[in-house]
Nucleic acid binder design. Structure first.
Lengths: 325, 325
DNA sequence: CTTTTTGGTGAAACCGGTTACAAAGATTAA
DNA sequence: TTAATCTTTGTAACCGGTTTCACCAAAAAG
């Protein structure tokens, strides 16, 4: 049988109120009694029931994390940052994968809301106006991470995808490349959209020929898109929307016995662990994923505690990392 | 203000009991009234309070996952399997990283137990007798995943690390290798221990010279161990305790301008995503990580529902995957 | 030596649900 | 027509905590 606060109270010969006070470090409990209660708690192996507690003070110490796919190497780093920060703040972490499906995303948000999470960190696939309104109606704190609409009423943390990508493409152009392709992510994903836009703008401003292929944020997709490109022509550089695609593209390029970077340069984005393990090592845009997670929790907790009013839009620093590709 | 069951009851002109019945799909509610209640729920945007619910029926629909590090590419796959299966079964998922620290592990187990999780899936770093006893006293269902002591009172899911590793080493020996090194994981981690043992046994049985280096389950560690080995001598094959180490070792080997597999063969373990992306592609032991996760949830849920008595020890099939290394 | 203040404690209400039980109305059997 | 039964609904107790408030004893003040 479970031991309840009542058992402790009886065992220590006090009322449940007193036990509760001891648990919550309420200072106005006589030292002697406090000791007795603590002793009883030990002896009985009492653990307060979190449900009852949360119910009584109408608060929750869990936050939810909804992301596309923990299996994609970019996200575990964010997740880790979130988890570490959350535990630091005394929160537990729910986690859910959406596979970029708006329906699943919706379902999980509802589910978490129903589970009384204190707030949700959302790395959303697709957030349109309508969706945002729905979220507002849930009356739950949200922090949007990594990707989102320009004008949301929520707190956000991310990097400046546009500028980062723009710089990367500029870097290629500066190195004399004139035929630069872009492997883009799913057309509805905001971050993919911004990278694509940055690429287009940079290309246009230099009067170059754009070449965009849209696929998934995966290794296979990168491989396939690149293979299909190589069937038609041979660019001198590729800018991929993320490292996984870049790695896939590299594989496709090498299969055609082309040399990287001599024949084709490749730039990725995210700087996942494996960017530095590939041969040649992948040049990429480094994203402070762990920090994004940490900051997201910081903002969310502030909002949960009601310390914030206006929505904050935080952009962290990115960095172009020149490696061997 | 939050909408409670009472608000709904008033709005629909019934008692809270009836509303509760409607929510729980209790069949004995008149159709007309059911409709009215459902209507009110919609209109008021009512969401039942999970804390109150769990408190009332003294049950929890969340399970906890404690693992070493979600950032290690092997674990997200297990985690994904767990998450998918958990949601399928109507459970939510808590997640925590221990970094292989027994203390942190202990802390998180306590925390989850205090959060009233229905059960815990533990991918534990170190589980000795004493620790196991502590877990037993928590009176919470546990499923041990991937690594554990031989004789635990808990359900377990894993592969046969020993046999898998033994076969891999045998494979190398069969290919004529006589100088085979082993890069091992942390000395206290059970799975590392079993792989090491399998290596030792296979080597001894063929009267070969063992060569074991102990490190971390990381890329850097693999790199360093291999570098130090190469300073002393040049083996013809390396069996690494996981793919990350194998990849690190490959990097070290290639830096010395040695060819894989011509000069040195490398075998890893886990078959992480990047095993197939490296050049050359890494030969490895494929572990059904996703399935491990799924099975773990299955067993845990059965136990939570009290459908099991004896502890079950499940071993899933592994497979040696011959690639290019 | 009263009177007021202070500090510590317990009784009871409350958080938002679930559920055993009683009761009322409708239906069926006698 | 009346008794027996079955449905459907409401009342109230309960889950395990937190917290307000009243109360009492001891200390401080008058």
């Amino acid at each position: 049988m479970k031991v309840t606060i009542m058992d402790v109270a009886n065992h220590a010969n006090v009322s449940k109120a007193t036990v509760s006070r001891v648990i919550n470090h309420n200072p106005k409990v006589a030292n002697e009694i406090r000791k007795r209660v603590l002793q009883s708690i030990k002896e009985l192996g009492y653990r307060p029931n979190a449900f009852a507690r949360n119910l009584a003070n109408n608060s929750s110490n869990v936050i939810g994390l909804i992301l596309p796919d923990i299996t994609n190497p970019y996200f575990p780093v964010i997740a880790r940052g979130i988890e570490d920060a959350a535990h630091q703040e005394g929160f537990s972490l729910f986690i859910s994968n959406t596979d970029n499906s708006p329906d699943i995303e919706q379902e999980y948000i509802q589910k978490m809301a129903g589970q009384q999470v204190g707030g949700i960190i959302l790395i959303s696939s697709i957030l349109d106006e309508e969706k945002v309104n729905e979220l507002c109606e849930l009356k739950i704190p949200f922090v949007l991470c990594d990707r989102f609409l320009a004008d949301t009423p929520f707190d956000t943390v991310s990097i400046d995808h546009y500028t980062a990508s723009y710089e990367a493409v500029l870097h290629l152009i500066g190195n004399g490349h004139r035929k630069i392709c872009h492997l883009s992510g799913p057309s509805l994903v905001q971050s993919a959209e911004m990278r694509r836009q940055a690429y287009s703008d940079a290309i246009q401003e230099h009067n170059l020929e754009p070449c965009i292929r849209v696929g998934e944020f995966s290794y296979e997709s990168g491989y396939q898109l690149m293979t299909s490109i190589l069937k038609e022509s041979t660019p001198t550089a590729v800018f991929a929307a993320n490292d996984l695609m870049a790695l896939g593209a590299m594989n496709a390029i090498q299969e055609q016995n082309l040399k990287i970077p001599q024949d084709i340069s490749v730039i990725g984005c995210d700087d996942i662990l494996f960017a530095q393990m590939s041969t040649p090592k992948l040049s990429t845009i480094s994203v402070p994923a762990y920090q994004i997670g940490v900051k997201a929790v910081g903002m969310l907790v502030e909002r949960i505690k009601g310390k914030k009013s206006a929505a904050e839009n935080l952009l962290l620093e990115h960095e172009f990392i020149q490696r061997e590709s």
